[in-house]
Write a protein that binds this DNA or RNA. Sequence first.
DNA 1: ATTGGCACTCCAGGCTACCGAGTGCTAGCG
DNA 2: CGCTAGCACTCGGTAGCCTGGAGTGCCAAT
Lengths: 333, 333
Amino acid sequence: MLDERKTAILRAVVQEYITTASPVGSTHIANAPGVKVSSATVRNEMAVLEQEGYLAQPHTSAGRVPTDRGYRFFVDHLAAPGPLDLQASQQVGAFFDSAHGRLEELLHQTTNLLAQVTHHAAVVVGPRAETAVVRSVQVVGLGGRTATVVAVLSNGTVENEQVELPVEMSELRLSAVSAHLQKHLPGSTLDAPRDLPATGDSDFDAVCAAAMQSLATTAAAEPVFVGGAASMARAFDAVDTVREVLNTLEQQFVLVSLVRDVLNRGLSVAIGAEHGVAPLVACSVIVKPVFVDGEQVGTVGVLGPTRMDYPQALATVEVVSERLGRRLSDGSN
Amino acid sequence: MLDERKTAILRAVVQEYITTASPVGSTHIANAPGVKVSSATVRNEMAVLEQEGYLAQPHTSAGRVPTDRGYRFFVDHLAAPGPLDLQASQQVGAFFDSAHGRLEELLHQTTNLLAQVTHHAAVVVGPRAETAVVRSVQVVGLGGRTATVVAVLSNGTVENEQVELPVEMSELRLSAVSAHLQKHLPGSTLDAPRDLPATGDSDFDAVCAAAMQSLATTAAAEPVFVGGAASMARAFDAVDTVREVLNTLEQQFVLVSLVRDVLNRGLSVAIGAEHGVAPLVACSVIVKPVFVDGEQVGTVGVLGPTRMDYPQALATVEVVSERLGRRLSDGSN
DNA sequence: ATTGGCACTCCAGGCTACCGAGTGCTAGCG
DNA sequence: CGCTAGCACTCGGTAGCCTGGAGTGCCAAT
């Protein structure tokens, strides 16, 4: 553990580096508020901090830069999660006050909100439809053996998928299928649908099964939304880094598992190499689950350079996750 | 109009520049196949081509670079739209052979396909739902005054939107509303829904109207999908250009109007400044409408640096638009 | 224990020189 | 008359050199 003075110095280095983006030297720190010693002392302390892995020097006789470990200490012990600044919080408020419409749309917009407020890339993972309760099911023929199966869930989302029916069926019989499903399914969930009573008509039963199967498959997917990827181009000036990061951002499954992984480890911040996704070593991730009635229904997060304003980003993600949860739980705000 | 020799030289310059990305000098051209004269003659001709605006010099004593006009001449007269190379065409074929599922998903995947094959950003604009015929409508209550209204259209897409009902309604009465809509709407389109017979129950009628209104609004939107934005980071090495282009790509409405605009002018290629979107002067756009039964239902396109392989890109977009159209028209391939 | 002072390091930026790719022009050739 | 070989010239990029400044580490003094 670091003594008070080292702590103060580390804090000052991180804060300075976050705003200036260039290595910070002992004299700056000596002048910083909260540090009451001379630059020589600061130099000594910084040498120690470097040995212990909190700081690094790009090269001899340059200033110091925080390491991942330095940032980690900063967010764990020094980043007072202070309140969101007024303008940002108004922006978030205004958004959730005026937001309306479908879940998907809402999540997508949330992504833009986060990106705008934090100036970082944002990622929102939506709820799996699996566990939501079915309110209504319907099968609509589209000619030939193709049909669309639609389910309205209790959380207001609509799952739909095209299916290839095992046998061709008249519109009339399809409505009978709809009616059959509509009668027995509502109230159960898509991952564990209630068993349908067999009707004795094998075609009929096969169509029902196909429809259910198809719904269960789509419902297993987690919808992911990414926004503000362009901000990554602003965060780095090495064009190679930008390329790598953008490429990775396009692979949504990487993002999803990244987010899940961080949450599983009980973290809300993963810094640089901590998250283990190689192309994103220069990035940190901040995630927060979204709860509705104590149940996790999704995740919101931002992804930016390790050199990011953690307190602000943490506060933003926190507020957004909270507002989003409230919004989803009662439908108003 | 350019004589044969100038034409050959221009072609050679464009081709060389497309592959090397650096200004091309007279000696390279003199050695190119199809040019049978000495470098001195090439120099003279290039001077003329420069005066006429087909070529430009980054600075005195550098090689020549094609101007927008040069590219334009190239695509109009020199870019033999030759067949798609085998590997690419197999990739496209494999994609459409195995693709299945919802329209949205299909369009989204198409975006990735295009991006992969061309190594450029891809944009796909989907059909408006407005003009599709309604097959089924349903209103499902979600508690309180909110409800979800769902419409299945003849093209297999599903439109859904949450609505705030003018009055609270029991589930039972909502099914009555559904039945009412279901009875009268199928067969008409969302932009011009058939007039519903008044029932005399003003609440009932108001709810119907609200549902219809909401559907009409969502149906007016054109779904846009963008993919492969990261390739822009590979296309340019000025990080500023990357920033600008990425920012613009995130503003989907700009893209939509860009695409529409180019099509309206009867073009399939817009080069550099031609398309009038300032931040994208360094980019060219290739678009192709997607037809189903002679009716345009969408647009596919790619967006890359002006220095792009036009024949290959044109061929790819052409094939994809054609396959997509076929896919959408009969549902199989 | 802290600090002022000092010698040292190393990068960034400005300057110069040079190389090479490329041009434009002209004189000569078929 | 059109083409080409040759030549002088231009100019950007790279390498080398220097210098100023920000920063460090260490030591001796307080």
